[in-house]
């Protein structure tokens, strides 16, 4: 009969988790097809986008449907700078961050006056305006023809062309994003951002400038969105306006809610699984969104903290005693 202590079970599970991570990191070398690698690249980009949304919607509690717009702005900025001005991908990145920062401040400032669903409506407006600009400013963006021949980035003289070459780049960016958001969540700034979601009145009473932190959250979120956009543009080498529609924002919102608004790993997991899911449900054509709609509804009713949040809770309950005392000083995200 197999008897194991809780701490041993925990160690085995953690070990299995790291093995899984190692498998994901080395995915292109494990003999999977080019197609699966391509999907994994796209999933990684979606995970970065979702983590951006996690900061603004998960931590700060501001419902944002603007992430597709930030994604598009990042993609077009990077694409135009490389194709028109001949910039290198790596020089584009700071420019993308700067432009995204401005977009984020613009998107966050309405939170001075409006909140909740009204703020969400403004973010919807932003996505539509961005899409219409991409579509109609033909002299700059190429309009419906999009931007073609976006050069792939090069690292150490190697052009990262095709999924197998691009995958490590996305893994590095995703890892850095996870590290950043994880540090943010567990820092004082993370605590402050969550107070804004919890009670704005109480937050202001202890000296927290809630407007500043809402704008900050939006800015972080659009920066991550912009970086994801840049990664996307240089991967697919061709972008056009429909790629950055409101449907993408809604998909990301589903990712956040199914993954768990307070669970960083849940959001990353959901971004990856739902991206693959969407691909494998392609046979259902547009009906596949019904499946996602039902999933969303189910999560809101039965798992308000999302699948990730539920699993985290379960983990805590099972292994609370196995944790070293004093480690749970601050609830992790």
């Amino acid at each position: 009969m197999l008897t194991m202590r809780r701490s041993e079970v925990r160690r085995v599970l953690v070990g299995a988790g790291w093995l899984g991570v190692a498998w994901l990191v080395t995915l292109p070398m494990t003999g999977v097809s080019r197609y699966v690698t391509h999907m994994a690249v796209i999933a990684g980009i979606y995970a970065i986008l979702a983590l951006g949304l996690f900061v603004v919607t998960g931590l700060t509690g501001q419902l944002s449907l603007g992430q597709a717009g930030a994604w598009g702005v990042g993609a077009y900025t990077s694409a135009l700078l490389t194709t028109r001005l001949g910039w290198d991908f790596w020089y584009c990145l700071p420019a993308v961050v700067l432009v995204s920062l401005l977009v984020g401040i613009g998107l966050g400032l309405p939170s001075l006056k409006v909140s909740g669903l009204y703020l969400a409506m403004i973010t919807v407006g932003f996505v539509e305006i961005a899409r219409l600009v991409f579509l109609n400013w033909i002299s700059l963006t190429g309009g419906p023809m999009g931007v073609i021949n976006i050069p792939p980035p090069s690292v150490l003289g190697q052009h990262l062309y095709g999924p197998r070459a691009y995958y490590p780049l996305v893994v590095v960016f995703l890892a850095l994003t996870i590290l950043f958001v994880w540090r943010l969540t567990n820092s004082r700034v993370g605590v402050v951002l969550r107070t804004v979601a919890d009670s704005e009145v109480a937050a202001r009473s202890v000296g927290i400038n809630t407007v500043y932190y809402k704008v900050l959250a939006f800015a972080i979120s659009t920066c991550l969105g912009g970086i994801a956009g840049s990664l996307y543009a240089h991967y697919v080498t061709y972008i056009d306006p429909p790629a950055f529609s409101l449907a993408e924002s809604i998909f990301l919102l589903i990712v956040i809610i199914v993954g768990g608004k307070s669970s960083l790993l849940g959001v990353v997991g959901a971004a990856i699984l739902l991206t693959f899911g969407l691909e494998y449900l392609k046979a259902l054509r547009e009906y596949r969104m019904i499946v996602y709609g039902l999933m969303l509804l189910g999560c809101i009713i039965f798992l308000p903290k999302g699948v990730g949040g539920y699993l985290e809770e379960l983990w805590q309950r099972l292994f609370a005693g196995a944790d070293r005392a004093g480690r749970q000083t601050v609830r992790t995200g």
């Binding site: 700034v189 605590v191 969550r194 919890d198 009145v201 109480a202 937050a203 202890v206 927290i208 601050v330």
Partner: peptide, 24 residues
């Protein structure tokens, strides 16, 4: 008016806001 969804300790940490290091 507490931060009801945050831990007791986090509530107090939030209270330190004006005294604490808050640069990102």
């Amino acid at each position: 008016n507490l931060f009801a969804n945050m831990t007791v300790l986090e509530n107090v940490l939030a209270g330190q806001h004006c005294q604490a290091e808050t640069r990102l």
